[in-house]
Amino acid sequence: MTKEDIVNRIWENMSLSKKQSAEVIDQLLVIIKDVLNDGERLKIGGFGVFEIRERKARMGRNPKTGEKAPIKQGETIKFKPGKTLKQAVASE
């Protein structure tokens, strides 16, 4: 599934044009990024939580060559699935 499929689903279910449906989904993604960028977590009941987590510096490995490569300290996006989503996925 791609963004296009989600846009089509919005377009089919609502009285928005195709262009508006695409704009709305783009805007939705921009807001998620902005919220996380502000250091806030986003909690969608039943689906899960998006948040920024700190990543410690560590020694990694280039999986192609096997050489050691340092991984910088930084931040990473963490998605923690909610109970409903976890159960639905596990029961399939």
Binding site: D5, F47, A88
Partner: peptide
Amino acid sequence: IVVDTFFNSIHDALVAG
């Protein structure tokens, strides 16, 4: 409706594998 449709779409896709 947009927000629900968005997250439901992802939910359904993941359940379907």
